[in-house]
Amino acid sequence: MKEEVQKYIDKIRPSLQADGGDVELIEVTEAGIVKVKLLGACSGCPMSTLTIKNGIEKTLKQNVEGVKEVQSV
């Protein structure tokens, strides 16, 4: 599942980089929890929770079977 998650993270990455940020995949657990780290401008952005939940989590849940939640570390 980690490879599939990374594939979709790589598709999301350019839109974050366009705003001066980035995202790094840290871990995918057996329970379907995806842990990511926001970098650059995204790390301190007040909208980072929305980026994770409405952007990254929504995309991963729709495209990768078994993803339950995305968490920021």
Rank of each mutant, 00 (worst) to 15 (best):
E24L: 10
V5L: 06
G40W: 02
E57C: 03
V23R: 03
K37N: 13
D22T: 04
I12A: 10
G55A: 08
V5E: 07
K61E: 09
K35G: 11
Q62K: 11
Q6K: 12
Q62A: 13
T29L: 03
I12F: 11
V34E: 03
R13G: 09
A18P: 09
T29D: 06
V70A: 03
S15C: 10
P46K: 01
C42Y: 03
G20V: 04
E27N: 15
T59A: 06
K35I: 11
V70T: 08
L39A: 04
V34W: 01
M1N: 12
K11Y: 11
V70D: 04
I56T: 02
T29S: 13
I12T: 11
P14S: 00
C45Y: 07
S15I: 14
Q71I: 11
N63P: 11
E27K: 15
C42F: 01
T49R: 13
D19P: 09
G55S: 08
I56P: 08
L25Y: 03
A31M: 08
E4P: 07
I56A: 00
N54C: 08
K53R: 10
I12M: 11
C42A: 08
L60E: 07
L39I: 05
V34G: 00
D19F: 05
Q71T: 09
G32I: 01
E69P: 08
Q62V: 00
G66D: 01
T29N: 07
S48V: 12
L38A: 02
E69H: 02
G20M: 05
P46A: 05
A31G: 12
A41M: 10
L50F: 11
L60M: 02
C45E: 05
K37S: 11
G32R: 06
V70Y: 01
E4H: 10
A41P: 13
D22R: 04
Q71M: 13
K11R: 10
Q71C: 08
E24H: 06
G40P: 15
P14N: 00
T49L: 11
I56L: 04
L16A: 03
K11D: 14
Y8V: 15
K53D: 04
G44W: 03
D10R: 07
R13S: 14
E57L: 06
K11F: 09
Q17F: 02
V5W: 06
V64K: 00
V73A: 15
I26W: 06
I33H: 08
K68C: 00
V5P: 11
R13V: 12
K37C: 03
E3H: 10
V64Q: 03
L50W: 09
N54P: 04
E30C: 00
G21Q: 05
V67G: 02
E4C: 04
Q71F: 02
M1Q: 13
K58I: 01
K53E: 12
V34F: 02
E69V: 08
N63L: 13
L60N: 04
I33D: 13
M47G: 13
D10E: 15
S43V: 13
V67Q: 03
